[in-house]
Design a protein around this nucleic acid. Structure first.
Length: 630
DNA sequence: CCCCCCCC
């Protein structure tokens, strides 16, 4: 392989012929003489790869050569990861030609690596057949529209090739119009522009896109002012982009957009997207102005309905926390509708958890919020596709819907049909693994997981709780001892306070946090339990919820006995709690106190062993394939 | 010009 494989004349055509789609039919093979981030110049340091601005994808500027001429081009950011390097030979399948400040700018939209650099491709610096920089006259656009009347390069020495580099006559049409067939013509006569080609350097575009998501109208108010806004996500077969309309644009456009329908959109402003606020896969977003044109499109079969990039459930471990992904799975369990109160804003949120499984044998919990949670009423085990759900690390991996997420029940996709068949044939009887950190452990938040319980020895051997994140596990253990000093503390009676109160005088229990005094405290359990199973022992911490189940009475009742001098009663209460077996769900987390680090096991849920359930479980286990094997 | 997306 050598530079001979490069497509001679391609640079000239790329630079000067706006409508030259034939150029790509057989593939254009070029060499990247340089690959640099556009930030590089500003950073100044040579050879050091500059970090892109936070939340901003890196954008690469490449120099492309056909062996005769070279020119600069930009790489669409979705190609950042194709692995292009200095001197790589690449095949370009698509590029958009744009005009920026009367100069042509080529953005490469489709590219594959043909060959990475090797020594055979290194040029002899004395070789006269070096490619030459395309004279800037070729790249200039004359304001009167006389484009493409490119002058012959004057300054090029005779040693350079000349005949094959003569440019084709180009059409004097501006701006670049990637697709020119009638199907792709907007009502305003302009050609349809692909979403992935949109950039702030581009005006006069029209996109043809489906609304995949439309928000409610939101109000905001902050120091800078207040107003109303809405978002839509627009999608075509090349990509997606988020569009936002403020105030007047809300009145003008909100009702025009309908989720699922296709529109021609033009004359919106293209801004850099603040990536941390959006999971839409685009560096840019649209600002819908009053002058923005939105026309419904009826012939829209060519615009895809939705583009998924499904992650299999076993691969969620590889997806970073807080990023977004698409998943599809069968609903194995549906949680009850419940309500949580947020810590920061004290708002109540309705939520519901689904357990999703797929044919990798993994399960994951997905949280639905608000209306979606409330209105969920699917029966049985539907297949559900989620687009843009947030990845959390609760219980190893968890998923949570965002405002921008989408949920599709029983979608018409091959993945859905495949999973339907798989679940009905095999999946429904299988056991699933959840993503757990620290090498073992249980589903949490739900009930005790009989299939995923750990022995106390395993918990210690697996070093659960030693990582940065807490680990959660299920264990069945017997209480061997309950510390009887400080088993309860006097707590504030204000709702949701539970802080410790101090007795300032008779009938005066003061809470520093609430700044009130109560005539009596509300005693709450604070337990240190020595527990054991067949393989080991551990100390578990339990608070009020756990204490009430373990003692089967409140801390106040025991404190009353104590204060009344009924020592026998207190002893009996402790004796009854001891030597019982419980199913524990715990949270393991290391903490350091007095320079000593140790793992604390906090009880998140405790339930008495249900012997009827346990007997049924064992019977079913023996009748299962597992039983047949032994 | 928003940007909250929450809990165990």
């Amino acid at each position: 392989m050598s530079v001979d494989m490069l497509t001679k004349g391609a640079i000239m055509r790329l630079a000067t012929c706006d409508d030259d789609d034939d150029l790509f039919n057989s593939g254009v093979v070029l060499q990247a003489l340089s690959v640099k981030s556009i930030n590089e110049g500003k950073e100044g340091k040579q050879g050091e790869k500059p970090a892109p601005k936070p939340g901003q994808a890196e954008r690469l500027r490449i120099i492309l050569s056909d062996g005769e001429w070279f020119m600069q081009a930009m790489l669409a950011t979705q190609l950042n990861d194709v692995g292009i390097e200095k001197n790589s030979i690449v095949r370009i399948s698509r590029a958009s030609r744009n005009i920026v400040q009367n100069r042509r700018l080529v953005i490469v939209l489709g590219l594959e690596i043909v060959q990475h650099f090797d020594e055979k491709l290194r040029r002899d610096p004395n070789d006269e057949k070096q490619p030459w920089s395309l004279p800037s006259e070729y790249l200039k656009v004359k304001p009167d529209g006389e484009n493409g009347q490119s002058p012959a390069p004057q300054s090029k020495p005779a040693a350079a090739p000349s005949t094959s580099a003569v440019p084709r006559t180009s059409t004097p049409q501006l701006p670049a119009q990637p697709h020119r067939d009638s199907k792709n013509t907007a009502p305003n006569g302009r050609s349809i522009y692909p979403i992935e080609g949109l950039s702030p350097y581009q005006n006069n575009w029209t996109i043809k896109a489906r609304v995949t998501q439309k928000s409610d109208i939101r109000r905001w108010s902050n120091q800078r002012g207040e107003g109303r806004l809405f978002n839509v996500t627009l999608m075509d077969d090349t990509g997606e982009i988020r569009a936002t309309g403020f105030n007047q644009a809300v009145d003008e456009l909100y009702d025009k957009f309908e989720e699922g329908k296709v529109y021609f959109v033009s004359k919106a402003r293209v801004n850099l997207a603040k990536k941390k606020f959006s999971n839409v896969n685009n560096d840019y977003e649209l600002s819908l102005e009053r002058s923005t044109e939105v026309e419904p499109c009826l012939e829209a079969a060519d615009v895809p309905t939705i583009k998924y990039n499904f992650v299999k459930l076993d691969a969620l471990q590889e997806v970073p926390k807080d990023s977004n992904c698409d998943v599809i799975g069968v609903v194995k369990e549906v949680g009850e509708l419940s309500e949580i109160t947020t810590k920061t804003t004290n708002r109540t949120m309705k939520k519901r958890e689904l357990t999703l499984v797929d044919d990798t044998g993994f399960s994951v919990r997905v949280t639905l919020w608000g209306n979606t949670a409330e209105k969920y009423e699917e029966e049985g085990h539907p297949v559900i596709a989620f687009k843009g759900v947030k990845v959390g690390d609760f219980g190893g991996r968890s998923l949570s819907m965002l405002m921008s997420s989408m949920m599709f029940v029983n979608p018409d996709t091959t993945e859905a049909f495949h999973l339907r068949g798989w679940f009905d044939d095999d999946g429904k009887t299988l056991q699933f693994s959840s993503h757990t950190s620290g090498g073992g452990g249980a589903g949490t938040g739900r009930g005790f997981d009989r299939d995923d319980q750990r022995t106390l020895m395993e918990i210690k051997n697996a070093n659960l709780g030693m990582g940065d994140q807490p680990d959660y596990f299920s264990s069945r253990a017997t209480i061997m001892h309950i510390k009887d000093n400080n088993f309860a503390y006097p707590a504030c009676r204000s709702p949701d306070c539970n802080k410790k109160v101090v007795e300032n005088g008779p009938g005066e229990w003061r809470c520093e946090k609430c700044n009130v005094s109560h005539s009596s405290p509300d005693y709450r359990f604070m337990l240190q339990l020595a527990v054991a199973d067949l393989h080991g022992q551990a100390w578990f911490q339990g608070f009020n919820d756990a204490g009430q189940i373990i003692f089967n009475r409140s801390a106040n009742e025991i404190m009353q006995m104590k204060e009344a001098g009924d020592d026998d009663g207190v002893l009996r209460a402790f004796a009854q709690a001891n030597y019982q077996a419980f199913n524990f769900n715990c949270r393991a987390k290391a903490d350091t106190w007095n320079d000593e680090t140790r793992v604390r096991y906090g009880i998140t849920k405790v339930e008495p062993v249900d012997f009827v359930k346990e007997a049924q479980y064992m019977r079913d286990k023996l009748q299962s394939e597992w039983g047949a094997e032994i």
